[in-house]
Amino acid sequence: MNSKDDSDSLNPKETRFELDELIALNEEIISLVQAGIPLELGLREMGNELPDRLGKISSDLAGKMERGSSLSEAMNSEGHRFPKVYRVIVEAGIKSGKLTVALEEMSNYAWELFHLRRQIGMAMVYPLIVFSLAYGLFMVFLFEMLSRFNMAYEVFRLGETRPLHYLNMMESTIVYWGMLPPLLLFVFVILWMRTGSSQLLNFKGTSRLVGWIPGVQKIANYYRYGNFSELMSLLIQQNIPFAESIVLAAEATGDDQLVKSANLMAERHLRSQPETGDSAKEYGWPPLLTWLLTTKNQQGELSLALKNAADMYRRKATNYTRWFRILFPIFTGTIIGGGTVLCYSLVLFLPFSDMLKQLANP
């Protein structure tokens, strides 16, 4: 069994949604479903009330649904606007008969990523300010203080030390590298501002920048495993075949490795190929999840076990998130801010201390 064609995920227009916009639309849809209001009518009203992009997309969805399309079909026809992972979640929620549950889990995951990204950004503000100030003072040092150090060395007839040699070399080549750090900082800020798109759900595009931060991927993986387990449990409850359920639930996470492993397990299941210890390791999933999917053959038993596993993975994700929010500001302040101050201090005092040592020698 192969996963759905992912060619549309390469469309550059797919990230037109900011993550907070997608969350807002998702929660409006949840409210409409829970209130029992026909989606086409509710989305039409939302289109008149919501601003700009959200309003237009809501109106377009309403128009397609009024012409007979389901919510999933309407979103698929607007594929360039909606992230594939969101479209698959909607499809899986409809098939499971628990659309609101599927959308609520996605909304919780998206909110966690949104707040995590915002907190990471806030934690980096102070160290980057320190870096900018230190770099500015370093430029002042090269243009003003370095010439005075050189003059002092000449007056006292001291030999040029290695730190002073490197500083003189940097001053003479400043035209080549001087603008590079500010340019890199500017590019980083621009890229970071673009990480808030809906691609943050699966860390694609510029949102990979968030996923590269140590600890973030681990938190996201636990949320994904929790959502995967929850959604597959709902699908199995509706007697959706195992192979179809596992692939659909995996695609709803947006994780390429999880989708690849799900397709592999689905193919083995359809061929009635028994699982061994070595084959189970190929999936790369947590041991509990692998054990459940390879040993729990009764539909009702597997559904309940997956539900419990989903709760466990979400608790783990919550605990890791709590620790991350405590430790990451400390880490960035110490490594970036403290490292910058240390480097600037060494640049300032090494030439001075070397001069004192030479003067102290008989």
Score class of each variant (00 low, 15 high):
E104F: 08
R81V: 14
D5T: 08
N319G: 08
T206Y: 11
S303H: 01
K204M: 07
A252D: 00
V130F: 02
M312V: 09
S70H: 09
L346D: 01
D255A: 11
N202I: 07
A110Q: 01
Y225R: 10
G338V: 05
E267I: 14
F82Q: 10
K95M: 11
G300M: 11
L327T: 03
R117K: 07
Y176D: 10
I326R: 04
N168Y: 03
V155P: 02
V101W: 01
L306I: 05
V85F: 03
L39F: 02
R16M: 13
E154D: 15
V210F: 01
M145Y: 14
Q238V: 08
G159Y: 03
G277K: 08
L99S: 02
S261R: 02
G79A: 11
L185Y: 04
R148N: 10
G338Y: 00
I330F: 02
E251L: 05
K307G: 13
F203Q: 08
F328T: 02
L25E: 01
Y176W: 15
Y344K: 08
W111H: 15
Y166V: 10
L356Q: 09
Q199D: 15
E171F: 09
I174C: 07
R315A: 12
Q217I: 11
Q217M: 13
T318R: 15
D255N: 12
I335D: 01
N150L: 15
R157H: 15
L167A: 07
T290I: 07
A62D: 03
E45H: 13
S107L: 01
Y223P: 05
S272A: 12
S261P: 14
L19V: 02
A102T: 04
N2L: 10
P351Q: 05
R87F: 09
E282L: 14
Q257L: 08
P83Q: 00
L32V: 11
Q298G: 13
S31Q: 13
I57S: 12
V88Q: 06
G93W: 00
E154Q: 14
L142A: 12
N202F: 10
Q299M: 14
L348E: 05
L304P: 04
I94S: 10
G42K: 02
I213S: 02
L137Y: 15
K13R: 08
P286N: 06
R44V: 05
K95L: 12
I336S: 08
L306W: 00
Y109F: 15
T173P: 04
K307A: 11
M193P: 08
M232V: 03
T294S: 06
L264D: 13
M65K: 04
N227R: 12
L158T: 04
S132P: 07
T321K: 05
D311F: 09
F149L: 14
H269G: 11
E105N: 14
L50D: 08
G196T: 13
N168R: 05
P163R: 04
D256L: 07
M193I: 09
M46Q: 11
A35K: 00
G63I: 03
M169W: 13
Q34A: 13
Q358K: 09
L113Q: 09
L25H: 02
P163M: 04
N202V: 02
M139G: 15
